[in-house]
Design a protein around this nucleic acid. Structure first.
Lengths: 196, 196
DNA sequence: CCTACCGATCGGTAGG
DNA sequence: CCTACCGATCGGTAGG
């Protein structure tokens, strides 16, 4: 009777995917379980059968993102020039999928509040992103591929901040902001060798 | 009988100041007129006597910010090296007043949604900020004070994005992020003369 | 500015 | 998974 389990797993994934879309439109606090459930085609009480609280659904959304990110980035490419090039590729991917960008830009801003249920997640997320970026610049510096005077720590922090900030402006007005071009310019300007 | 008008004006300002604080904690959609009114010491119906809708209060908050910014920045310093140095000073000021940073980081993220009441405000705000930054880099370039190969347009967009992104990380975890140092590093690295 | 109220919506629970 | 419900809260209005 694994059929029952399979159906439940598919339904759970369906709910998470729908939640991502609704969070993108309304933020976490602005989203309702009833709206998410309606799009899935069940009642909000039915949704609570799968996720017992609103917060537990948010946790599941963030866990999925972590799983995807870990698979795509951290394990796939060690810190270095290639990792930075991959980051540009990720930005290109995101530009073609605005929904993904939207959710995390909104959640990150909501979660600066210390009592937000996703606060710890984003604090950890940012710390790891900074360390990964900084490590990449250190590798470049050791190979003499980093322009003289560039501090890996500052460059790493600024890279993560830049990606976030570009996303907000690009979401606000996509026609006025060349997200990928600006990111590529920032990175190439720091290197003494071609980025890719 | 201007006393009545004066009292009303003071009360209005009081409501706006309180709204800024509540928006910082809960965002715009997460804030309630009742909570803002409670802190002011009136009922939510009383608040609606001064601001007939929730949205009209948000508009008043943004208008005040515009007035402050215009006075402090646009008119005071023409685009150029000094304008960039002033931007660092503004960041130093903001770091000492986290509440201000908090509201606008939250609102900007909420307002990427096209139907958000502050959407147009932020679209305009970002466009003007980009133009001001870009103009500053153009002035530097004309004087030979911009490092070779630096595109003023990219540098301007990236400066605005960087400030936004740094603010979110700094709000998330103030102990781990040197906002002013990172901003100063970014700017100094683009110039061939001392920033200040 | 207040009291008193409206319809709508929220997250969550009981019981099946 | 659903029906039916709970207490709480929301923005806004009437009438003073």
């Amino acid at each position: 009777m694994t059929g029952g389990y399979l159906k439940g797993r598919i339904r759970r994934e369906d709910i998470i995917t729908t939640a991502v879309a609704v969070y993108a439109e309304a933020g976490y606090h602005g989203s309702s379980l009833r709206e998410i459930a309606r799009r899935v085609g069940i009642t909000h009480a039915g949704l609570l059968y799968y996720f017992p609280t609103k917060e537990s659904l948010l946790a599941a959304v963030l866990e999925r993102r972590d799983a995807e990110d870990t698979e795509r980035e951290r394990l796939a490419v060690p810190p270095g020039r290639e990792a930075l090039a991959h980051l540009v590729a990720l930005a290109e991917h995101n530009v073609r999928h605005p929904g993904i960008v939207d959710v995390y830009a909104r959640l990150a801003a909501e979660a600066v509040a210390a009592d937000h249920p996703a606060h710890d997640y984003f604090e950890r997320h940012y710390r790891m992103a900074r360390e990964y970026a900084t490590a990449s610049f250190r590798v470049l510096a050791a190979r003499g591929e980093l322009r003289a005077g560039v501090d890996p720590e500052h460059a790493g922090l600024n890279l993560v901040a830049l990606m976030d900030g570009l996303q907000v402006q690009w979401l606000s007005d996509g026609t006025a902001v060349d997200l990928v071009g600006a990111l590529r310019f920032y990175l190439q300007d720091l290197l003494t060798v071609p980025l890719d």
